[in-house]
Structure formats: C-alpha cells, structure tokens
Write a protein that binds this DNA or RNA. Sequence first.
DNA 1: GCTTGACCCTGTAGTTGCTACAGGGTGCAT
DNA 2: ATGCACCCTGTAGCAACTACAGGGTCAAGC
Lengths: 136, 136
Amino acid sequence: MKIGELSRATGTNIETIRYYERIGLLPAPARTDANYRSYGDAHRARLRFVRHSRELGFTIDEIRSLLDLSDHPERDCADADRIASAHLEQVEAKIAQLSALRDELTRIVGRCRGGLAGDCRVIEALGDHGQCGGAH
Amino acid sequence: MKIGELSRATGTNIETIRYYERIGLLPAPARTDANYRSYGDAHRARLRFVRHSRELGFTIDEIRSLLDLSDHPERDCADADRIASAHLEQVEAKIAQLSALRDELTRIVGRCRGGLAGDCRVIEALGDHGQCGGAH
DNA sequence: GCTTGACCCTGTAGTTGCTACAGGGTGCAT
DNA sequence: ATGCACCCTGTAGCAACTACAGGGTCAAGC
C-alpha cells in the first residue's frame, strides 16, 4: 500500500509516518518505480504498535525499546514490564500533580466575585504563592 | 539586584529570566555601567507571578493576558476568571484522560507473568488496540 | 600587579514529537 | 493536454525552555 493508504489505515498523519521513518522508528519500505513508498502488513502492524504506545504516553525512546523487545522474542519479557511499570508510575505522579493543581485552581477561581482587576482575587492569588499552603 | 540574585530569590533559571525578557514577558531592566541587568522589587513580583502561573500550568500567552489585566486595575476582573476557569477545565480534562491511561496501563502491566518477549502480554497489548475496550 | 574564580553578557543551537510548507514529480481521468 | 489527487525531498516552525561558545567584569588573595 502507498503512504496515503497506510495513513488512513492507522489514523496517522502522512508527515508523521515519514518522520518516524526518518528517526528510525519505522523501517524504510520498498519503493515503486516512481519512488513511492510501498508498505506491507508488517509495516502497518508496527505503525499501529507505535501509535497505540504514543496514545498511552510512551516516549519515542521507550517505544524504541519496546519495539526492540518485540523484534527479539527470545529476550526477557521483564524488560517490557519494567518500562510499562515505570511509565505507569509517571502517569500516576502526573495525575497526583494535576489533582493538586486542580484543587488550587478551584480555590482561586471560586474566590472571584466579579469587579475590577485591581481587586481581583485571581490575580492576587497568582502573584502570591504564600496563599497556596505549600501544595506545590 | 543582579540577575543571579533574582534567580535565587524566585527559584528561576537565569537563562529562563533572559528568555522571558526576550519574549517580552518581563520588561527589560536598567543596566549597570558594566551592562549588567539591574532588577527592583517590581521585577521580582512580576517574575513570581509568572513562575507561579507557569507552575499552575498556564501557557505563556495566558500569562500575558493575566499580566495585562494586572497592569490595568480598572479593567473587568471577569476576564481573569474566564482564563482561570478555562484552564481549570483543561486540567480536569487532562486528569480524566490520564486516569483512563492509568487504568489501561494497570491492566496491561498486571498481565505480565514473566517469561519471554515472544509471549509477552504487554507487547501484545501495545500492538493490539482492539484489546482496549474503546477507552481511547 | 596579577591571577583566580564567580559572575555577567550576546547569540545560537538543541530538546520532544510532531506539523506545515515550498517546490517539484507521477498517474489517471476527461 | 490539462486538471487533480497523490507522492517526493528538504527545511522551518511550534512551546517553553536549556545549554553551550566565546567573551567581558569585578573583588579577593598572593
């Protein structure tokens, strides 16, 4: 299939596919006589793997390691589990951090009673970190 | 005070302070004879406002608007409240998204029973979006 | 008076993960 | 033959910094 078809089949931008090839995440496919990229099922499966991993928030480097494992079925699965577990921890940390932000933003927004910017509690709270109770 | 002192007083990288000046977020300060930047209390307060807002996840453009309001106390505070509310919504959406990711990652990681990468459930799950139950 | 070290300056390039052109070639239908 | 959809390469842009390179300034200590 040509790059446009692969793009539609995986929901990936064409430029992104070429970008992945450029950085070595996808192997360079064969070319037609007109120098068009020609992909097979293996390319599609690999790209789906990459896109799904990206949707889950894995970095390109993490995906590189995961693909490497996937290419070497004789290796230890524990590596994949380690990468995924570490990523899960990061996601949980990010959720905790954002929850703290949400709480503080809720507090700040709730204080607005309208009026002029000169008396604005929102602006005041942004300038004065001491009001936060050490949340961040 | 010199840039190093301002840096320590606000916990901001020196390069970041110069960057903020370059993009017009902080006003250019006076200079000493040796061409060193010389800051006053107003600069420090403004930088604290910027850093605190950044910690809360506001973008530079949002901060520009908030600073603009802060510089014009006669304007309507509702603008500040609108920016903060919109940002709060984004934070809540991000938390919801990350929570879904966490759930799926937990599911994926929990399936690993050790063994070889060829049989790895983690790698399998990454390649097969159909296992996700349409969560994302 | 000379060196050492901490500090400051400008300007440019790198980071992540794409996305968006510019400027051209290919292939098929009308 | 001409329009249009599609493909190619190469480069530049985004956010919000961060990291140099290559140089100037200043106070302390010998």
